[in-house]
């Protein structure tokens, strides 16, 4: 056997040590990974193209504005969203958001998500009356815009083109106090009273049916 084989364990140990060094990320000294690479942490639930997975209640995120994704990731990371024991989906997202090591990574992945092509969402809810919903949408219009295009100045995300099941779930969470009740969550706190204007699930379905008619 060649003499060098005696050194094999030593070489393997040294290589493992070098590899471990590569994993060390001292504070502030690590490079920010590209958004596309960071997005791998999201694909298990949100899909490879950010199209969402209704079976695990993961909404489509492709094409959402970077400022909104960044803001929501920030809320999940700081506990302003996904803090309520009954918010199962939020509690699942909370630790996932913390896979981003710092603000720079949050920003990078948010910008990448915003570059993904918006995926058309097939309607899943039945029984919504878009005509009735149009009247109720007047309340939403002030922040989300007449076409549901959103308004960054008011921190209101675009809602046109969003999955109807997700919109219903979020309206129910706002109304039920599972979201938007943390005093530090200013924009969530603004949305919560708006959700309270919708009397019941039928009213929510109506307004969502109207949102479904808005082009995006």
């Amino acid at each position: 056997m060649p003499r060098t084989s005696n050194f094999a364990p030593l070489i393997v140990t040294a290589l493992a040590g070098l590899l471990a060094q590569g994993c060390v990320r001292p504070d502030g000294a690590h490079p920010t990974l590209p958004g596309q690479e960071l997005f791998r942490a999201c694909v298990a639930c949100h899909g490879t193209e950010g199209q969402g997975t209704p079976s695990v209640a993961a909404p489509p995120i492709a094409g959402l504005p970077a400022w909104y994704v960044e803001a929501q990731l920030g809320k999940f990371r700081s506990g302003l969203r996904g803090y309520h024991p009954d918010d199962a989906e939020g509690l699942r997202m909370r630790p996932m958001s913390r896979q981003m090591m710092d603000e720079a990574e949050v920003k990078a992945v948010s910008e990448y998500v915003s570059t993904l092509a918006l995926k058309p969402q097939a309607p899943t809810l039945t029984g919504g009356d878009a005509e009735k919903g149009k009247a109720a949408y007047g309340t939403c219009m002030a922040c989300h815009g007449d076409k549901g295009q959103g308004n960054p100045a008011l921190k209101a995300p675009p809602i046109a083109g969003q999955a109807d099941w997700y919109l219903l779930a979020q309206l129910q969470k706002f109304k039920g106090g599972l979201r938007g009740t943390n005093p530090a969550d200013v924009s969530g706190g603004q949305m919560r009273p708006m959700s309270l204007t919708l009397a019941d699930e039928q009213a929510m379905k109506n307004v969502i049916a109207h949102i479904g008619t808005l082009p995006r």
Binding site: P85, A88, L91, R92, R94, P95
Partner: peptide
Amino acid sequence: VIAQQWAWT
């Protein structure tokens, strides 16, 4: 102590 994916209440 209530466990759920992926949090403790």
